[in-house]
Amino acid sequence: MVHMRSLLDRFIQAVCCGLFIVMVVAASWQVISRYALNSPSTISEAFLRFSLVWLSMIAIAYVAGRREHVSLTLLTDRLSGIWKATLDMSIEILFIAFAGLVMIYGGAQAASNTMSQIYPMLEIPKGFLYLSLPASGSIIVTYCLMNCLDLFHACHLSRSQ
């Protein structure tokens, strides 16, 4: 499981870093074309908007899956043992339910409904923008399932000792 998590982490990090580098290049081109060439590039602006959505969604999935998101720990800090493990497992299950229903199912519906609409500047279907929802939802579900297995193994090990 550790190897699979490490591979997923590295893949997502590479995608996010690559996308960020491409965005920096596109933003630099936008500035150069606007001020040096006096002919602003409309494609780079639309691409940056599109890329920012994808980068944000993938980064959110990464952070949520690694359990490094902002959370209220008032209750979990006071619990220990089986109660803490149960609450942590419940939170993971809620994340899976949200990601599955809202992000994967809802995002797939939104993408499907907007595939016939064209993103004007990039001349691609708007559905590609909404595909970031099921993609990031799938990453969240994958991480949460790994987190559930880790929690289960940690709880099982603490019981046997």
Rank of each mutant, 00 (worst) to 15 (best):
V2Q: 00
H3T: 07
L7C: 00
L8H: 04
I12V: 15
I12Q: 08
Q13H: 08
C16D: 07
C16R: 02
G18A: 06
G18E: 01
I21V: 09
V22H: 04
V25Y: 02
A27L: 11
S28W: 02
W29D: 03
W29P: 03
V31I: 14
V31R: 04
A36V: 07
L37D: 09
L37C: 09
P40Q: 15
S44N: 10
A46N: 05
S51N: 01
L55M: 02
L55W: 11
S56V: 12
M57I: 11
A59M: 09
I60H: 14
A61L: 15
A61Q: 13
V63H: 15
V63Y: 15
V63E: 14
G65D: 08
G65H: 05
H69Q: 12
V70F: 02
S71A: 00
S71H: 03
L72H: 14
L75S: 10
D77A: 01
I82D: 15
K84R: 12
K84S: 13
A85F: 00
L87G: 06
L87W: 01
D88M: 00
D88K: 02
S90I: 05
L94I: 12
F95R: 11
F98D: 02
A99Y: 07
G100R: 01
G100A: 04
G100L: 06
L101V: 04
L101M: 05
L101R: 00
V102K: 10
V102I: 09
M103H: 01
I104V: 13
I104A: 03
G106T: 09
G106P: 07
A108G: 07
Q109V: 13
Q109Y: 12
A110P: 13
A110S: 08
A110F: 09
S112P: 12
N113T: 10
M115Y: 01
S116R: 09
M121A: 10
I124C: 12
G127N: 07
G127Q: 03
F128D: 11
L129Y: 04
L131C: 11
L131F: 13
S132K: 00
L133V: 06
I140C: 01
Y143V: 07
L145I: 15
L145R: 08
L145D: 09
C148H: 10
L149N: 06
L151A: 00
F152K: 05
F152T: 11
C155V: 05
L157H: 06
L157M: 07
L157Q: 01
L157Y: 00
R159K: 15
Q161G: 07
